[in-house]
């Protein structure tokens, strides 16, 4: 464990979810292009705002010297662009203002210009990547792998999609029928995440003694339960299996598009299953941050 603990893990997790949720909203617009997903889009964009706000609040709460002397926060952008903390705070602050604005336009049912969406998408990707780069640039052997920022981005987007699904379905059960294209994206991300995770562990274990200690702490040591139980089983195996089965089933029975099937299939069971599976993905995303933060061992200077 370094000087960063649980609060930073929660912060990185929330920032990732927020970015992912916003990206889901944009995907509804540009990728799926399904008018019936309008509620999912709105829910996704609205959800991103309080989640990011909460994350920023936790970041400030963790920086106690700034918490008790709030005016010092004004110095946060002093070290642009060299400090990833300065750069990241700038990205996240801009993203937050954009979310508030975009959310307001959606609330008023006003036209959202394309450049807002493009800027939002860039800032969302920046936020997701920053959560990985922030710790990836610190001098901790286990964190210094090129996979880490990609893994955090992919996992953030995947947890964000899951959170947006839950928020959307809570609002309107019928969208459960129309999210199949997004579920395909989600499944792809989850599989990619699993691949990145194990290649990260493999590369970390083979490049440095201290990093190898971190890896053994994760695979067989004190973090093994969080890793195998929380991240691998709950966060990856359950969602990947469930979504694969769903997509295979969906292929076999293609429902007629013009029928409103919500009373048939979007029953309580389906909704509960979605809550459970997407909840598991979100929990897995949290376990990932917690494990990566907790497994950090400082460089061995006594070589």
């Amino acid at each position: 464990m370094t000087m960063w603990g649980m609060l930073i893990a929660i912060y990185l997790f929330l920032a990732g979810i927020s970015a992912g949720s916003y990206i889901t909203g944009i995907l509804c617009d540009w990728y799926v292009k399904d008018e019936r997903l309008i509620k999912l889009r709105k829910a996704a964009i609205w959800l991103a705002t309080p989640v990011l706000g909460l994350g920023l609040g936790i970041l400030i709460f963790d920086a106690e010297a700034g918490l008790f002397n709030p005016w010092r926060m004004a110095f946060l952008f002093n070290n642009l662009p060299f400090s990833m903390m300065s750069t990241g705070t700038l990205i996240i602050t801009l993203f937050f203002f954009l979310l508030v604005w975009h959310g307001w336009l959606e609330f008023k049912n006003k036209f959202v210009p394309n450049w807002v969406k493009v800027t939002g998408l860039v800032l969302a990707l920046g936020t997701a990547a920053y959560t990985g780069l922030l710790i990836g640039l610190a001098q901790v052997p286990f964190w210094n792998t090129p996979m880490l920022p990609i893994l955090f981005s992919v996992s953030g987007v995947s947890a964000g999609i899951a959170a947006a699904f839950i928020a959307g379905v809570m609002w309107d059960k019928s969208i459960i029928e129309f999210i199949i294209p997004l579920k395909k994206v989600h499944l792809g991300l989850l599989v990619f995440e699993a691949f990145l995770l194990f290649s990260l562990l493999y590369v970390a274990a083979s490049r440095d003694v201290t990093a190898a200690q971190s890896v053994s702490m994760i695979l067989t040591g004190e973090l093994a339960l969080w890793f195998w139980g929380g991240l691998v089983f709950i966060g990856l195996v359950i969602p990947i299996t469930s979504e694969s089965i769903e997509l295979i089933k969906h292929k076999q029975v293609e429902p007629p598009l013009d029928l409103n099937l919500q009373h048939f299939s979007a029953g309580k069971g389906e909704v509960m299953k979605l809550y459970f599976v997407e909840g598991a993905t979100i929990f897995g995303g949290f376990c990932l941050r917690l494990i990566i933060i907790s497994a950090a061992i400082p460089i061995n200077v006594m070589l």
Partner: peptide
């Protein structure tokens, strides 16, 4: 001290683990 916000990034970045947060 009057500029430090206590974000502890320095403590994580220092390879010699030389930083200490005091209150």
């Amino acid at each position: 001290n009057s500029k430090c916000i206590g974000c502890k990034y320095c403590g994580v970045a220092c390879p010699y683990s030389a930083r200490v947060q005091l209150h």
